[in-house]
Design a protein around this nucleic acid. Structure first.
Lengths: 219, 219
DNA sequence: TAGATTGTTAATCGATTAACAATC
DNA sequence: TAGATTGTTAATCGATTAACAATC
């Protein structure tokens, strides 16, 4: 399988931001939303939001926009967030704790059932409602019921061996936050998060703005 | 200024991963690196790495590749990582702690000088070598010497007011990890990190692979 | 009605990929 | 030499943007 390339990646990446806004609008008692609203929130051109929403196939109402509850459902369907996904979290450090504490994930179907670490200081302690388990006991804890995805939040130096272990136990999807590119078999899909990439983007913007580089300033 | 669009964003986002690999190769005593090496590490086609490196303008050596130390310098130059950038971190929760603890950032010129929080439990305590300061004292702590960038790691509900405060004190660049789109004046640049976007990508890949969607499987 | 909005098609732009020449 | 690699130009692909029709 190797690398999986889903179409419309930029659209997919914007979807969670729309969702966040839509839920807040619901709380405010709103029933309809227009692309103009969403675009204003995201600080982009309305055509972008319109094209994104068109991808979901949900029909709108001219002059009123889209029914918020329907749009939420359509977006979640489009990005695969209506089916709950069972996950294991490996690495109970600060980053793992942050992921565990991000409440919206559970709303969006990410169901973290087990948390592992290799640090004796952490094993057995409770972390945001989860008892931290020993990575050594992973096989036993899964008991033949392997979670669909694994979230790797260990140090770069341990990430590859953790990944190897997970793959051996039957995990097919890995969400990798470790700062390293993992080597996995063809049938395993890795989604890598490179947080430093955001810093590179910011530094590039600063450089461009201040040194009068090739940056394009919109509006 | 508003939205700043830097050219070659995908290239910029890949650069930190190349850097990581290059430093490790240096440690291994290697002197040269080829695009093939980098591409294999990143699990992509060599032409991608070649084009990326070409952007830096560094000439290579046919048959041998590029001199690693030179390439590191060229990449850092290209993405603006050779000039140290002073930063303040607002929000000393688990995510803030993770950012603070990510050692590579300091290597790459991100110099976090102050850490703020509004939680009385955290204020005054030490966190990875930094005393957590009270957000209320921000103006005083900056003493007219405002850091170039602010890293926002507070809850979505507090993020906008924190941003307002930072902008008022003269911060022009914001790296926003809060799950909300910030409203800022035209002359402020925001780099937003949407971690949930990665989960949307992963869920989409799962959906596509398992339900036989439109996903393209490379190789 | 006028105007805000969706819906849709076409144009543009930029990133990726392919092809191949140059050369060490 | 042969082959691995850089360097460079062209082709393709896909995302963004523009334009405008439809309609409530």
């Amino acid at each position: 399988m190797g690398r999986v390339k889903v179409p419309n990646a930029p659209t997919i990446r914007r979807m969670p931001s729309y969702l966040h806004k839509l839920y807040r609008m619901l709380e405010e008692g709103k029933k309809y939303v227009s692309c103009t609203d969403l675009a204003k929130y995201m600080d982009m051109e309305p055509i972008v939001a319109r094209k994104d929403i068109a991808m979901t196939g949900l029909p709108g109402h001219r002059r009123h926009g889209y029914v918020i509850v329907d749009l939420i459902h359509a977006i979640r369907d489009y990005i695969g967030w209506n089916e709950p996904i069972e996950a294991t979290l490996v690495g109970a450090g600060s980053l793992g704790t942050a992921i565990l504490g991000f409440g919206e994930f559970s709303t969006y179907g990410l169901n973290i059932t087990t948390v592992f670490d290799s640090d004796a200081q952490k094993i057995g302690r409770e972390l945001r409602g989860h008892v931290v388990l020993d990575v050594e006991d992973m096989e036993e804890e899964f008991k033949g019921h392997t979670p669909k995805i694994a979230i790797i939040c260990v140090n770069a130096s341990q990430a590859q061996s953790v990944a190897d272990k997970l793959v051996k136990l039957g995990v097919h999807y890995i969400w990798n936050f470790a700062n390293i590119s993992l080597t996995v078999p063809e049938n395993v899909v890795v989604q890598r998060e490179v947080i430093a990439g955001g810093f590179a983007m910011l530094a590039s913007k600063i450089k461009n703005v201040e040194n009068g580089g090739a940056a394009q300033i919109v509006e």
